[in-house]
Simulated scan of single mutants.
Amino acid sequence: MPAQPDRRAQLGTFLRSRRERLTPDEVGLPQTGRRRTPGLRREELALLAGISATWYTYLEQGRKIRASEQVLTALAVALRLDPQERDHLLQLAGHAPAAAEAEEREPLTAEAAAVPLLLQPNPAYIIGGTYDVLSHNQAAADLFPRLIMEADRPANFVRWVFLEPAARHVLLDWEPEARALLARLRMLAARHPGDPRYTRLVEDLTEGSPEAREWWPQYEVQARHSGRKRLRHPRRGARDYTYTAFHLAEQPEQTLVVYYDSGDRDPKAEP
């Protein structure tokens, strides 16, 4: 965290940069005479935010004053800041950003959602931070039966592994796979304390699965990674699969997972 005087200077620079990118037309103000500087004038922004022009000038100049969260929120609205910019503004002013209310379903761009379809016939899906399946192709639906079937809420890979009997037939090494998956969920949940999506998911698992109930208190953690799995395909029988995980650039907790059939039949399992 920068020292207090430096943070005030950064706050002033940030406010000025965002003020200068707006035009009177964009915020519904009339053009009044020739402008020597780009964007809104300080008094115009102060008017939009409902605060004193002198006080706003002091804030932009980095003077030793403290803005309330209410005032900063009004400025964020007037400046048309996006959520990330608003959080940055609050941090520079010495306020912790308000915790964003968790959405029931994570947003996924249409371009990203189309990627699993392009990877057919390789099984592929995109999962969110809580392992909701946000997009998938037909090969994934075939390889993981009864995963894509719930109409009232998104399919969830962790729920499928622990609560769907078909998972124990598909995952030839069910216990180590399930333990590793729970350890990865533990790491993700730790990044979002108090997020109701993780709370509900863990409650579902520990209520419905004796294994999850036993393993969750052991606090095992593991990062998402690529690797190999032994899976039973509905038509080709037991097979060795290599899988690769890619984090989406703009949503790093969303992960594209792609499976490649190695071509080897697993001799240790019956089809």
Results as ranks from 00 to 15, higher is better:
D87T: 01
R41P: 03
R239N: 03
T57G: 04
A141E: 13
A102K: 06
V221K: 11
T73C: 09
R42T: 10
P252G: 12
R21A: 07
W216E: 08
E20C: 12
A178T: 02
S209F: 00
I65Y: 06
T32Y: 13
R159C: 05
A93Y: 00
L40N: 01
P165N: 02
R41A: 03
R42V: 11
F246E: 06
L45K: 01
E101I: 13
L119W: 04
L15I: 07
R35E: 05
E214H: 13
H169V: 15
T57Y: 05
R265H: 13
P154T: 02
L59I: 11
R265W: 09
I65C: 08
T13E: 15
L163G: 04
R19A: 06
V77K: 12
P196M: 04
A99F: 03
E43V: 06
Q120G: 10
L231N: 05
K64A: 15
D132A: 07
S68D: 01
H169D: 15
A49G: 03
S135R: 04
P116D: 02
R35N: 04
E270S: 13
K64P: 09
Y198V: 02
P83Y: 00
E44Y: 07
R66F: 06
L22W: 02
V258A: 01
A151K: 15
D261K: 02
T255D: 02
E177K: 10
A139I: 07
R153D: 09
Q61A: 09
V115A: 11
P121K: 09
R7A: 14
